[in-house]
Simulated scan of single mutants.
Amino acid sequence: MPVSPDPLTALLAERGVLLADGATGTNLFNMGLSSGDAPEFWNVDHPDRIRRLYASAVEAGSDLFLTNTFGGNASRLKLHEAQGRVRELNRVGAEIGREVADKAGRKVLVAGSMGPTGEIMAPMGSLTHELAVEMFHEQAEGLKEGGADILWVETISAPEEYKAAAEACGKAGMPWAGTMSFDTAGRTMMGVTSADFVKLVGKLANPPAAFGANCGTGASDLLRTVLGFMAQGPERPVIAKGNAGIPKYVDGEIKYDGTPALMADYAELARNAGATIIGGCCGTMPEHLRAMREALDTRPLGERPTLEQITAALGAFSSAQDGTEITGCGDPSHDHGPRRERRGRRRS
């Protein structure tokens, strides 16, 4: 199926750097979601709360926001005996987003969130490529029906699952963006490094409009991964969607220690590192987004930061290495390969 025009690339060309949204889960838990419940049910049961979630990102200055459909595939919904509601829950999640975006008074994109299936891909596990494509495609069609501008695959660990999602987005005829989560000493849970990921994206038959990293551990680690991407000279825009600091248990609850000021510094450093789509993941609230918006709007573009500058501003890395040290140099900000001029990167 022919892929529809890509509004993400168009908006990037117009604005240069885009602010994405913040956390979905953290915000919904603050609204009363119970641990273990499926957030996607709220699209139907509590649409007013989902509308408020989306609107809070828009009001904070986000240029795009993700739908409340992260776990909206058949495999994840089966845990709640709702595998037959994939199309409905994704469609409604996107419809609410479309309503909010259309009232924003400026161009705001609705990004249809598609998270991992939660299953292990063959040959290590039982999930075949064909079945994964089928599950992602079903979800993609629901998001398309609801009016999503672009599909947004996120928090993927396995390259096989990323490839399946890419094929499914193509079958739906939708443009897409996709991130992996580098949460294991700079690698994904399945061992993918930042350098591996750039190569993977470059070989896809249906490549994303933008790619990058989300979630993982702290903001420092995520920016080290971004530097790893940039060292490979990527052709496509890079996404940075880091957590608001480090999670800590406080009074029996998980709290993230990142302040709005820290996330403002993170946004500036992410842009200087080469990312052009910058948002937050777990723990990122509207107050963080407002500080990030102000930083991106008021702070001048600086030089690409070093690892030392990142840790000085955002805190220590969670691991000594990030999996890309085969060159013998532990600093991916050093020139390990072709590097394009940042201001003139070709966006394909």
Rank of each mutant, 00 (worst) to 15 (best):
A273W: 07
G302L: 08
E134F: 05
L19A: 03
K103D: 15
P332Q: 12
M189D: 10
L19R: 00
P286Q: 09
F65Y: 08
T276H: 00
E325Y: 02
A275M: 11
G344Q: 06
V44S: 05
A60F: 13
S113T: 10
I254T: 15
L8F: 15
E325P: 01
G147V: 05
A312N: 10
E303C: 01
H80T: 06
V198I: 09
D37Q: 15
V250S: 04
G173A: 00
G32C: 11
A267S: 10
Q321G: 13
E303D: 14
G142F: 06
M135G: 03
K248F: 07
M124R: 14
L12C: 04
Q83M: 11
K203Y: 00
G283K: 08
M190P: 01
T67A: 06
R15P: 02
D221C: 12
V201Q: 08
A209C: 05
K163E: 14
P47T: 13
F211G: 03
P300M: 11
N214P: 08
D196W: 14
P116W: 11
G97R: 06
S56L: 06
D149N: 15
R304H: 02
W176A: 01
L66R: 10
E235P: 00
P237G: 09
E154S: 12
A244T: 09
G22Y: 04
T9P: 00
G218T: 08
V238I: 15
V58S: 12
G97T: 05
G283Q: 05
E253H: 10
A240M: 04
K107W: 01
N30M: 13
R299L: 13
T179L: 08
R15G: 02
V100T: 10
I278N: 03
D149F: 01
F317N: 06
R346G: 11
K199C: 01
A101Y: 02
A205I: 01
L151T: 07
G328W: 07
A10G: 02
P47Q: 03
M135T: 01
S113N: 15
M263R: 10
M174W: 00
G258A: 06
G191Q: 03
N243E: 02
G93H: 11
K248H: 15
G118Q: 13
L53A: 05
I150Q: 09
A316L: 09
R343F: 10
P286K: 09
G146C: 05
A205H: 10
K163Q: 15
V133W: 08
T327W: 13
A210G: 08
T193E: 04
R49L: 15
S4E: 00
L79A: 12
R52E: 15
E253D: 04
W42Y: 11
A312F: 01
R236T: 09
R345S: 03
D196N: 13
S181H: 00
A312H: 10
A82L: 14
L200S: 03
M263G: 05
G32V: 03
R271V: 12
V250Q: 13
D45N: 12
